[in-house]
Design a protein around this nucleic acid. Structure first.
Lengths: 225, 225
DNA sequence: ACCTGAACACCGTTCAAGT
DNA sequence: ACCTGAACACCGTTCAAGT
């Protein structure tokens, strides 16, 4: 019961037909998908099987389609992953600005973290597409906005937001790896019981460090004239 | 001349025999490798072809060996990559402690950045093995040491060093992606001329932010009693 | 507009067997 | 102690052709 049955995972989605709009003609229609259908299915495979198992062939089989069919919708796997990444970031809860830019930055950071945690391997997917120059801008923009409200110039806000973004992606990646390591390991040796509440605590601490650093940087720049 | 001939890359290493100690018996000896030989060869393939082309089969062919032979030295590819990662971090220039912990932190951070930049895709390799819980400790330890010298307790030092590490890995990953994007693109559209001196400048700024944040955190904690 | 069928050029890993 | 040979179960991508 505690052993992991990796080979007997059953996808919730098996058919994964597109919407409910297969009317308009004969009853039995060939199933045709849109770009969005494919992205949605990819998101669901990602969440249920993880990034290593999100292959073009598996995605195709979930969609009841030949692998080559996917290449009508996306030029290659990277573009598909960019769309998946955009979709993850698109579900970021948006936080209304207040008078406190540091509180706002914390809110935006938490919103990003929550969005990444919403799908298995979410941080890794976003991280990899951001590393390749595709997408991931939506995340950076929300952070820049909050920091700018602190009265920092554009160059400073941009550099700081990149630092915040790198921290968040790295932190949440580690978080998610630990999540499935412990869900897999289950009856393993205790290994390293280092982090318990560190998951969220370490996250807030990192943001606090960067926000505090920005405030200190402004003070230092001001005192230099 | 400006076009990239991806298919005609010639490895500097072609033979890659082990040391010079093939004596002791008959002249023609079967070439046998050690774990370290394999790691060295992997490092060289990484540097010349990049992480996506560092495959077990290609590594085997560089070593004039069957792919299956590698599995006598390493249980799987991940372990191999962990060894490669260790090797990269092992070449970190070590910086003697001074009286200024912030300067020390900057030194250690720069040393880590330099080590990562020394091999193509270095940051991604270290990042991925660190994300999987294997190795990467050496990097964290050097950062913790510098921060601890600032008089912070262990929990704070550990959390802060993880934040610094995440920032560095994210930053250098981006740096290296841009490096080869521009070396490949060459005669491409200007795209985004956003960053020029940002490579190093943004790095220092990020470390300054985190170090300043630590100082501010101490001040805040002290004033709270 | 969206998909099939078939192929190409690869992967990581296992395992009995050799020396 | 270190490697071969052969196989297994996969990959991403292309492309002519179908509807």
């Amino acid at each position: 019961m505690n052993a992991v049955h990796l080979n007997t995972v059953h996808l919730n989605i098996v058919h994964y037909d597109c919407g409910m709009d297969n009317s308009e003609d004969t009853g039995t229609r060939v199933i045709r998908h849109t770009r969005e259908d494919v992205t949605r299915a990819a998101l669901s495979v990602l969440d249920e099987l993880g990034l290593p198992d999100l292959t073009m062939r598996r995605l195709a089989s979930v969609l009841n389609v030949q692998p080559s069919a996917l290449y009508w919708h996306f030029a290659n796997k990277q573009s598909l992953l960019a769309a998946v990444s955009d979709s993850i970031l698109g579900q970021m809860r948006l936080t209304p600005p207040t008078q406190d830019w540091r509180a706002d930055l914390h809110s935006e950071a938490r919103a990003l973290r929550d969005a990444l945690l919403a799908y298995r391997d979410g941080a890794e997917v976003v991280s990899s597409t951001l590393a390749l120059g595709l997408g991931g801008d939506r995340a950076e923009q929300s952070l820049i906005a909050a920091i700018s409200r602190g009265g920092f110039d554009d160059r400073t806000s941009a550099a700081a937001s990149r630092a915040v973004l790198h921290f968040i992606l790295g932190h949440v990646s580690r978080e998610q790896q630990h999540l499935q390591a412990s869900s897999l390991g289950a009856a393993r040796e205790p290994e390293a019981p280092l982090d318990d509440d560190d998951s969220a605590g370490g996250f807030e601490f990192g943001i606090t460090l960067l926000a505090g650093g920005l405030e200190a940087y402004r003070a230092a720049a001001a005192s230099r004239g």
